[in-house]
Simulated scan of single mutants.
Amino acid sequence: KIVRDQHLPAVAKDGDYQLAAAASRHGKVDGIPNYPSIEAMLAAEAGLEAVSLCMPPQFRYDAARTALEAKKHVFLEKPPGATVSEVEHLKAL
């Protein structure tokens, strides 16, 4: 819900960013490529510079780690992780 209510409108009105692809097991975004996982998206969309992770904190760590290891910039909502140790590890990456 927050993706449709907040994130998509914010990206759409900011000319510095372009939504290039989405990854979700359940949702789809019209007009762009959609993938079932972040791994599939990163494999198919080599030109992505950054990802914004819009998911509950308990799932963010693995997705953020995957994106950081692929040398992408990562935007995390608050709280950025389920535990402080997760956030510290992501910060180190």
Results as ranks from 00 to 15, higher is better:
residue 47 G to R: 12
residue 36 P to G: 10
residue 63 A to Y: 10
residue 11 V to N: 00
residue 21 A to G: 08
residue 50 A to N: 12
residue 86 E to T: 08
residue 63 A to C: 10
residue 46 A to C: 00
residue 35 Y to V: 07
residue 17 Y to L: 15
residue 43 A to W: 01
residue 5 D to V: 07
residue 42 L to Q: 09
residue 38 I to G: 15
residue 5 D to L: 11
residue 66 T to C: 07
residue 69 E to N: 14
residue 6 Q to D: 06
residue 93 L to I: 15
residue 8 L to Y: 01
residue 40 A to W: 05
residue 76 L to T: 11
residue 88 E to P: 00
residue 7 H to E: 13
residue 79 P to H: 00
residue 73 H to A: 14
residue 64 A to Q: 04
residue 83 T to R: 12
residue 85 S to N: 03
residue 51 V to H: 04
residue 24 S to Y: 07
residue 20 A to H: 00
residue 34 N to L: 08
residue 88 E to Y: 11
residue 56 P to A: 11
residue 90 L to R: 03
residue 72 K to I: 01
residue 53 L to H: 08
residue 36 P to C: 09
residue 88 E to V: 14
residue 46 A to S: 14
residue 26 H to M: 05
residue 60 R to M: 10
residue 70 A to S: 14
residue 11 V to A: 01
residue 35 Y to M: 09
residue 79 P to G: 02
residue 31 G to Q: 06
residue 73 H to N: 09
residue 82 A to C: 02
residue 77 E to M: 04
residue 87 V to Y: 14
residue 19 L to Y: 02
residue 80 P to W: 04
residue 86 E to I: 06
residue 28 K to N: 05
residue 32 I to C: 06
residue 16 D to E: 08
residue 33 P to L: 06
residue 85 S to Q: 09
residue 57 P to I: 01
residue 92 A to K: 13
residue 87 V to F: 10
residue 67 A to G: 11
residue 70 A to N: 14
residue 50 A to G: 15
residue 63 A to H: 09
residue 1 K to T: 14
residue 48 L to P: 09
residue 87 V to K: 08
residue 36 P to E: 14
residue 91 K to P: 00
residue 79 P to I: 03
residue 25 R to Q: 06
residue 3 V to C: 10
